[in-house]
């Protein structure tokens, strides 16, 4: 119930909110403005075809590699000093509590997924996800439980505005690393503007509109919790990757771009999203 009665909490966190608004959000906004320019530039050079539909092996340009690497180092420091201890602490919580938190955060993403299903012309999927969201928010008590999966409303794939632009044929633009938020592309960062401009119902009821039930803090807390939840699930994997990489930055970049292409193509196999002709040239038998 505390989520509905945090009137006082809201004022207690005024300082944090203001800091976030004027520094953190300010930075993001600047990056997004730059991204807008970059995306336009990348579109200007496009032949109008969907880059992904060409099944190309095309590399995404790292236009600001020096800056990106600097931000990456900063983010890595933040991960190790702030987020990793939080994730390790989070892992001490009982498994059902972690599962419930994960479910609740996952359920919240539906408010961005559903409009994007519609924008991508996936109306059946939009209806299914709406039903899923309704069942889990009500019967599943604000998404803590996932009864929808038990009645066949499973196989949920998150969608966002970056993926929608991708399905519409907009290329990635330059690769960028955002402070705190991590890897992105010009297209995806630009698309995030849609979420801050009314395209994310959770953002609307927390940050954009002054409601008595939820506040800005709830939005940023949920974003932070999502990051901690993700990190807790991938703690060993990330450290392992870093330990076994000769260029960790390049590995993370590659994995991020591969994942985004897959998400956009809604593909399960790499062979569907990448040109594998390179393999054909190599003969060792």
């Amino acid at each position: 119930m505390s989520i509905f009665n945090n009137y006082y909490t809201k004022y207690r966190f005024t300082f944090i909110e203001d800091t976030i608004k004027f520094t953190y959000m300010g930075r993001i906004f600047k990056v997004l403005i730059i991204s807008l320019f970059l995306t336009s530039a990348s579109l200007a050079g496009s032949d109008g075809e969907n880059e992904l539909s060409k099944n190309s092996n095309g590399e995404v340009k790292d236009c600001f590699e020096t800056i990106n690497r600097g931000v990456f180092v900063f983010n890595e420091g933040l991960r190790k000093v702030v987020f990793e201890p939080l994730a390790k602490g989070y892992l001490y919580l009982p498994a059902p509590l972690r599962a419930g938190t994960g479910n609740m955060l996952n359920n919240l993403t539906n408010v961005v997924t559903i409009p994007n299903n519609v924008l991508q012309g996936e109306f059946k999927l939009a209806a299914k996800n709406t039903a899923r969201f309704t069942v889990n928010t009500t019967i599943g008590i604000l998404g803590i439980f996932d009864p929808a999966s038990k009645i066949g409303l499973n196989d949920y794939d998150k969608e966002d505005y970056g993926q929608t632009l991708g399905t519409w044929g907009v290329g990635e633009g330059c690769y960028i690393v955002l402070p705190v938020l991590g890897p992105s592309t010009a297209r995806d960062a630009f698309a995030s503007l849609a979420s801050f401009s009314g395209g994310d119902a959770w953002y609307n009821v927390t940050v954009r509109n002054d409601t008595h039930y939820v506040s800005d803090f709830d939005y940023y807390f949920s974003r932070g919790a999502r990051g901690v939840d993700f990190l807790a699930k991938n703690l060993g994997a990330l450290d392992n990757l870093e330990e076994n990489s000769i260029d960790f930055y390049a590995s993370v970049k590659s994995l991020y771009l591969q994942e985004r292409r897959q998400q956009i193509a809604n593909a399960d196999e790499i062979t569907e999203t990448f040109d594998d002709s390179d393999w054909e040239e190599i003969e060792t038998q």
Binding site: E59, S245, I246, D247, Y249, A250, S251, K253, S254, L255, Q258, E259, Q262, A267, D268, E269, I270, T273, F274, D278
Partner: peptide, 14 residues
């Protein structure tokens, strides 16, 4: 869906 060989290729290229 994430290829380890591809990741390594892009890492080496970098």
């Amino acid at each position: 869906g994430l290829s380890l060989a591809r990741t390594q290729k892009e890492e080496f290229n970098s």
